[in-house]
Design a protein around this nucleic acid. Sequence first.
DNA 1: TCGATGTATCGACTTTAGTCGATGTTATAT
DNA 2: ATATAACATCGACTAAAGTCGATACATCGA
Lengths: 115, 115
Amino acid sequence: MNHRAIARFHAALSNEVRVRIVALICARKEMCVCELVDELGLSQANVSRHVGILRDAGILQDRKIGTWVLLRVDEALLREQFGSLLDEIHAGHVASVHMDAEQRLTERCGRALCA
Amino acid sequence: MNHRAIARFHAALSNEVRVRIVALICARKEMCVCELVDELGLSQANVSRHVGILRDAGILQDRKIGTWVLLRVDEALLREQFGSLLDEIHAGHVASVHMDAEQRLTERCGRALCA
DNA sequence: TCGATGTATCGACTTTAGTCGATGTTATAT
DNA sequence: ATATAACATCGACTAAAGTCGATACATCGA
């Protein structure tokens, strides 16, 4: 996962409506779009769009039953995604770049820091 | 942390520039804004704004050394924040709302599902 | 086949986020 | 005091996200 992909994942959960959708589906195990429309009081078009964003981000899975699309959250996968985000951010901790910040900045200025 | 706060936290990491800033600072332990400007090739005003967003979200801490603002990431805190986000999303898993989705939707329609 | 229901997409609009140059602020060095 | 350097904020502009009504698509029941 590169930085752009990390940003995209977080972007999926950066909207209050989408967080509520995820929380609702976690609580109910499975929900269809029309139930979400009732719960959230938003237009069906809007809810469908948010669901699509969460689906694209891999946060929601679904199965079709008749005309319904039953949505669910793979919680284990979600935990795994969160974990790998942290690992990615924390990668690159090699000693070579760990020069002390004050030392580095003093060199940058070509002078000592008087403060 | 309510749903709005969760969304705000994720929004802080929903931008590629900000993810790069966090990764850079993690790798270097501490960086000032002017170093970030050099690394990212963006205007100082822009970087300062992104830094402010990360600071407001509690992801960046800082200390002043002369005119420099040295930024750092509290990685343990960040891990804790991620953990509590998941806990919050997964809260509310009480048996009462776990009625089977097909059963619930069938009742909603007042008819049985034939599919 | 036809109508009804659930979902997805389109078009248009409003709101919010991102970007930069210019300017303000604070701390330091001369 | 004044100049300089780092950072923050402002104003204006552009780009992207969110929202809704209307409409298209798909599936089922009659």
